[in-house]
Lab assay of single mutants.
Amino acid sequence: VTVHVNRYTYHFDNPEEAEKFAREMAKRLNMTVEIHGNTLKVE
């Protein structure tokens, strides 16, 4: 599972951890999480 935050890319083996990380980053940056299959984008 890949998480994109701005120009950074993070890889996770565990989808739940990836989503938790993405949501935490989105909250911190006041952004939203978009899910595209195995890719989560924080925008």
Rank of each mutant, 00 (worst) to 15 (best):
V1W: 15
V5R: 02
M31F: 05
T39L: 11
T2R: 05
G37N: 06
A22H: 01
G37A: 05
R23L: 11
M31S: 10
A26N: 02
N6L: 14
L40A: 03
E24Y: 12
V3L: 03
M25V: 14
R28W: 10
P15N: 09
V3P: 01
I35A: 08
T32S: 09
E24N: 06
V33I: 09
L29A: 04
T39P: 03
M31H: 05
R7F: 12
K41A: 06
V5N: 02
T2P: 02
T32C: 06
F21L: 01
E24M: 11
F21A: 02
R23W: 14
E17D: 12
N30G: 14
K27P: 01
V3S: 01
L40C: 03
N14C: 06
F12H: 00
H11A: 05
F21V: 01
L29S: 03
T2S: 08
Y8W: 12
F21P: 00
Y8R: 11
G37I: 06
L40N: 03
K27T: 12
A18R: 00
N14E: 07
L29D: 04
N14I: 07
M25F: 05
K41G: 04
E24K: 08
N30Q: 07
A26R: 03
F21R: 00
L29Q: 05
V1G: 03
M31R: 04
N14L: 08
E17I: 08
E43C: 13
E24D: 11
H11N: 06
D13K: 09
T9K: 10
V33S: 02
V3T: 01
E16L: 11
A18E: 00
E19K: 08
E24W: 13
T9H: 08
Y10R: 02
N6T: 07
L40I: 15
Y8K: 14
G37S: 04
F12C: 05
R7Y: 10
D13L: 10
T9V: 14
V42R: 01
H4D: 04
V3D: 01
M25D: 01
V33P: 02
N6G: 15
A22P: 00
M31Y: 06
A22R: 02
T32P: 05
E16M: 12
L29T: 04
A18V: 01
L29Y: 14
P15T: 11
A18F: 01
F12G: 00
V1S: 06
N38H: 09
N38C: 05
G37L: 06
Y8V: 14
K20D: 11
E17G: 03
V1M: 11
V5L: 08
M25T: 11
A22C: 04
N30A: 05
Y8L: 14
Y10Q: 02
F12L: 01
N38G: 07
Y10F: 12
D13R: 06
M25G: 00
L40R: 01
M25I: 15
N6I: 10
N14T: 12
N38I: 05
E19S: 06
F21Y: 04
A22M: 03
E17L: 10
H36P: 01
E17A: 11
A26H: 02
E19Q: 09
F21G: 00
V3R: 00
L29P: 07
F12E: 00
L29M: 06
E16H: 10
V42S: 04
N38S: 10
T39W: 07
K20A: 13
D13F: 08
P15V: 14
H36E: 10
V3W: 00
R23A: 09
K27M: 12
A26I: 02
N6E: 10
N6A: 08
V5P: 02
T39E: 10
V42M: 05
R28L: 14
E34G: 07
R7T: 13
